[in-house]
Structures are given as structure tokens and as C-alpha cells.
């Protein structure tokens, strides 16, 4: 293994860690809004790190471009959908969890 492999491995591991954290949040958090926080942020960050990890080892810049494109699309969709779900939840009267 060469240096880039280690870099990639670390980045990928960080990415997967965020995914795990997001899932833990999804399971542990008390209401839909807080779960949305967990999901949106950590999964997007997680995917970002995975993309970076893979980009390090990508065979060409086009692949990097494609990976980034995918990530941007996921960011856009993720954020928009999070907003839509949260908006729908307030409109339908899903109560917020408070202490």
C-alpha cells in the first residue's frame, strides 16, 4: 500500500463512521425533526468523505468529477427533502420533542 491508499482508507473510514453515527441518531433521537438533523448532516458528510476517499484513488479526473457530481446531487436532494419533510411535519402538526 502506498500513501494515497492510507489517505483513502482513512477518509473512507471517517465517511463510514459518519454513516454509522447518522444511523445511531436515527435510532436514538426522539422525534422526526431531530432525526432529520442526524440523517441529513451526517449522511451527507459521510458520503462526502467516501467520495473523497474514492477520489484519491480514482483512475481519472473524470471519475472525480462524476463522484463530485453524485455528491452534489445527493446534497441537493437530501437538503431539499429534509426541508420538505420537516415542513410537512409541522403542517400536519407533528409535535416537536422537548425535554
Amino acid at each position: 500500500m502506498i500513501l494515497s491508499d492510507y489517505v483513502a482508507a482513512v477518509l473512507l473510514l471517517v465517511g463510514v463512521f459518519f454513516f454509522l453515527a447518522g444511523t445511531v441518531g436515527l435510532v436514538r433521537f426522539p422525534d422526526v425533526y431531530t432525526r432529520l438533523h442526524a440523517l441529513t448532516k451526517s449522511d451527507n458528510v459521510g458520503l462526502g468523505f467516501v467520495v473523497m476517499g474514492l477520489a484519491v484513488e480514482a483512475e481519472s479526473w473524470f471519475v472525480v468529477g462524476k463522484l463530485l457530481l453524485i455528491w452534489m446531487l445527493v446534497l441537493l436532494a437530501g437538503a431539499s427533502v429534509a426541508h420538505l419533510i420537516a415542513r410537512g411535519a409541522t403542517q400536519r402538526g407533528v409535535r416537536m420533542w422537548t425535554d
Binding site: 459518519f18 448532516k41 458528510v45
Partner: peptide, 8 residues
């Protein structure tokens, strides 16, 4: 991401 992961 770090923030929410920490809290979770």
C-alpha cells in the same frame, strides 16, 4: 456532521 454525530 461532527456536531450531530457527537450528540447522537
Amino acid at each position: 456532521g461532527v456536531d450531530v454525530a457527537w450528540r447522537a
